[in-house]
Amino acid sequence: MRSVAKIKDRFKIPGLKSLKVNSNWVFHFDGSGCDGCNAEYIACLSPGWDIERLGFRNTGNPSYADVLLVTGLLDEEAKRGLIEVYEQTRPDCKVVAAGVCACTGGLFDGSKGILSGADSVIPVDLYVAGCAVRPESIIDALMEITGNDTNKGTPEGEETA
């Protein structure tokens, strides 16, 4: 393999790494929440919003993931599971905490056995607000964390009545 690397350097052939490809893989970790944010992320995969057209792909293996999406209320079992999943992800895999319960524990912060948000377990890169987080803000977050930014949250054009 080393000879191939040498040839590549001499003739400056753009290696596979430099190709900019629009395909990001998302791994969805759901704490034992009220299933609201979980249903909203699945709504993103369903025909209503369909993030597959934007190049995102849902995967079941954390080592493939570009983005680790954490939703729902985190308690003891979720903490063990989250740490185990986080250790399998790649070093430059970004973490997005979607929903008020995943960001700061929301309404149930301070309850017995409830962790106040995902940042008390793993380092989080982006927080998304909203109780039952809206699919628009999930798409905003995914687009922003993978580098292609959008018109964040500001309504464009006419607002429907």
């Binding site: 687009m143 018109n151 949250g153 309504p155 464009e156 429907t160 009545a161």
Partner: peptide, 15 residues
């Protein structure tokens, strides 16, 4: 198709 063109189509907010 019934998907909303969200990032390009701008945000549709109800009143």
């Amino acid at each position: 198709p019934e998907t909303s063109k969200y990032p390009e189509g701008g945000l549709k907010l109800s009143k």
